[in-house]
Design a protein around this nucleic acid. Structure first.
Lengths: 340, 340
DNA sequence: AAACAATGTTGGAACGTTCCATCATTGTCT
DNA sequence: AGACAATGATGGAACGTTCCAACATTGTTT
């Protein structure tokens, strides 16, 4: 059997012929619906095995006029949070017989437009946007055509989108409350003002500080979500007078920058400076880093998004409300009580 | 327009009617093949825009009896190497109008069997296995049905699989040669004997040491690909007498363990100990770590795999030979000359 | 002028399923 | 006995494309 004369794949008619029944019976057996006598059922099952029959998904999609496929658009495959969320999504969708079709928004030359076009051509039944997407006409149009969920983004692009994400406000308060409980008062924040997560986490920081009567110690230095940004901000924070005894960074990468800056300033962590991050990335777990960090149940968020989608696909359902998942705090070696 | 009475999507017949031509002309315009008069072409293009027509991928796949889809099976989405390779794959496949269908082998309850089944039902034209897969009957069967490439795995599952991966032997030699050039002689290796990459990299280490006349200093301590394993191995290495002045670790994670162990033993890096890793993960770039590491052109490997697949899909082509991509060395702050 | 090639255009037949109306058989209730 | 429901099986029509053979028109060569 060379490549040229690779034998044609068996179709449902071949199976029907081999089993001595009509194609309809084969279809009924395969889908498990309707009434089929035991004898014919086993005959069909035999023939299927015999011929190595595999139903053709394209033909099925055409016949059913549905695709059992969910489009998943990532904006950054490298972000561990997204990866983990997608794994959660995948696990739940798979259980329900739904296939995932994934693509990376940024990898697409025409900024995702052609990816969305492809997905819609595939007749996806739902769309999941993982991460914050830039506004784009194609995106808002797509969201109007199929049920859409924004996963891990603080807000969806336009209307008709349900948001499933972590409660960044609550997470930030968790971290700050932990530092306060340790006895810190002078707690600074390295933020990322340009991003939506940055804004939410900063709000949580400020709220918790105020709630603890520490409003006068609120101090935010703008950085970004990178190590570089955290480093720059921390140098500013640590070089001046009135040094904070603890820093809550907007994410783990920025926290790493803070750690580096502390080292350069001759400050020991956690003896001279406590540092807390956000996202509980694999980095935080590393022995050399051991960073206290807010854990954002990303896998669970993915699963939840899948559940919402599945419910949404039931006929007669309506758009579910947004959901905020509650994060937890993973305490590690980078935070301790300040020395008197 | 409520959800209930969402208007039926326009089909090619609707477009043909609106443009006053036959469905065949619409098809020709859309695919850009054959002869169509300018007048009818613009009429069709108008109608397409007017109706928001979008061809149905399932019907097209059925008609063409091909899917323009490549199945991609990952065994670990969290591995940055794989992610980057997939991005390379995606970028090249997209340019050629091929769609990627991704799934995670491990996420599948039945150990990937059902994922492969789904992919084959989708009539994928080729299969890419990213990372080392466990042997499985479904996998070998799939590899016989469609052109298959193992990406980033040292060896494919069974026959009929082309392997595209990095030359681990050469990469290891690169790192070791760098250490030797710095003046190190007592260079130890923290290995991962249980894995295929571990074996290849160890071989490279030993070969380079021997080539430099340093056979007597060859010393390998077994660890694994994790920080934990690297830490354990390094403690053994550094606590005894005859301490090495440099360590080449099997990957970046293990190298991190080595760094931690050095710190615990009171050794400064790179003053007292040089450390080199492998994979050039984002970790290695971090200021606090700044690890010299072998860079494994993963994006390029993905692109190359895509090129091979595209060539393989041409009728009359044969299975291409395996390919090894040459890595490069990224020198950072963790390696320096030993002090006299 | 006839033959032929290049350019345009068409409708019908695939492609491989599911869906549906129909029919046949059997058993159960009035 | 007749009516009806449950069970079992069937073939034809859809689904929305592409593919193909056939036909029309025009221009070019013999």
């Amino acid at each position: 059997m060379t490549a040229l004369e690779r034998k044609r794949a068996a179709t449902i008619l071949d199976v029907a012929a081999a089993a001595g029944v009509s194609k309809s019976v084969v279809s009924l057996v395969l889908r498990g619906t309707g009434y089929v006598s035991a004898a014919k059922r086993t005959a069909v099952e035999h023939a299927v095995l015999e011929l190595g029959y595999r139903p053709n998904a394209a033909a099925r999609a055409l016949g059913e006029s549905r695709s059992r496929t969910v489009g998943v658009v990532l904006n950054d495959m490298r972000n561990p949070w997204f990866v983990s969320a997608v794994e959660g999504l995948n696990s739940t969708l798979n259980e329900r017989g739904l296939q995932m079709l994934m693509g990376d928004f940024r990898l697409d030359s025409r900024s995702g437009e052609s990816l969305l076009k492809k997905l819609l051509e595939m007749n996806i039944e739902a769309l999941v946007l993982v991460g914050t997407m830039p506004e784009s006409p194609g995106l808002t149009a797509a969201a109007l055509q199929v049920p859409t969920i924004a996963l891990g983004a603080p807000t969806g692009p336009g209307a008709n989108v349900t948001v499933v994400t972590n409660d960044d406000d609550a997470g930030a308060r968790l971290a700050v409350a932990h530092l306060i409980a340790l006895g810190h008062r002078r707690i600074a924040h390295v933020g990322a003002p340009a991003t939506a997560v940055g804004v939410a986490r900063r709000r949580g920081y400020e709220a918790e500080m105020r709630a603890a009567g520490l409003a006068e110690f609120i101090r935010t230095v703008p950085g970004d979500l990178s190590e570089e940004g955290g480093h720059r901000a921390a140098l500013e924070l640590l070089s001046g007078g009135d040094r904070p005894t603890a820093v809550f960074a907007v994410n783990d990468m920025a926290a790493l920058g803070v750690l580096s800056a502390a080292e350069e300033c001759g400050l020991a962590v956690p003896a001279d400076l406590s540092v807390a991050g956000y996202d509980n990335t694999p980095l935080a777990r590393l022995r050399r880093i051991s960073l206290t960090s807010v854990d954002t149940a990303s896998f669970a968020a993915g699963q939840r998004a899948a559940e919402l989608l599945i419910a949404r696909l039931e006929p007669g359902s309506t758009m579910p409300p947004d959901e905020l998942l509650v994060p937890t705090l993973e305490v590690r070696g980078s935070t301790a009580a300040p020395h008197a």
